[in-house]
C-alpha cells in the first residue's frame, strides 16, 4: 500500500509540473497590437476555459488570448499589421465546443474570409 501511495503522489506531482503555464500568452494590449473581442456563450467553469484559449491561440496572427469568464468574452491579441479571419475565430470557438456570438475589432484586423 505504501508503494501505491508514493506512486500516486509522484503521479500528481508529475502531472502538475507538466501542466505548467498556458501555451498562449495573456496578450496585454499595447501600441503594437490590436485586441479582438469575441462574445462566447456556454463557457461557465474554469476548466472549460483552457480548451477555448488553446483553440484561439492556434490561429495564425494571434499572439495572445485572455478569457473573461464572467462577461463571456474572449479577447484575442493580434500584432498591428497582421490580420485574422473571422471565420477562423468562429471555427476555433466551435472546435472548443462553445458558441461564438458577436466579434468586435477595427475592420483592418480582419482578412477576407473564404467562407462567411
Amino acid at each position: 500500500m505504501g508503494y501505491l501511495h508514493r506512486s500516486f503522489a509522484l503521479l500528481i506531482l508529475w502531472s502538475l509540473l507538466l501542466a505548467g503555464p498556458s501555451p498562449v500568452g495573456a496578450g496585454q494590449p499595447g501600441p503594437a497590437t490590436h485586441d479582438i473581442m469575441i462574445r462566447v456563450d456556454g463557457a461557465s467553469c474554469p476548466f472549460c476555459a483552457f480548451g477555448l484559449e488553446k483553440r484561439l491561440g492556434r490561429i495564425e496572427g494571434v499572439t495572445g488570448v485572455r478569457i473573461e469568464m464572467k462577461e463571456g468574452k474572449a479577447i484575442v491579441t493580434v500584432k498591428k499589421g497582421a490580420t485574422v479571419s473571422k471565420h477562423a475565430l468562429r471555427q476555433a470557438i466551435e472546435e472548443a465546443g462553445f458558441t461564438p456570438r458577436e466579434i468586435i475589432a477595427p475592420p483592418e484586423v480582419f482578412s477576407k474570409d473564404a467562407a462567411p
Binding site: 502531472s15 467553469c45 476548466f47 472549460c48 488553446k54 483553440r55 472546435e95 465546443g97
Partner: peptide
Amino acid sequence: LPVAKNQLIFREQF
C-alpha cells in the same frame, strides 16, 4: 461538457 478539438485530459483516481 465539451473537450476541445485536440485537447487531452489526463485523470487519475485513488
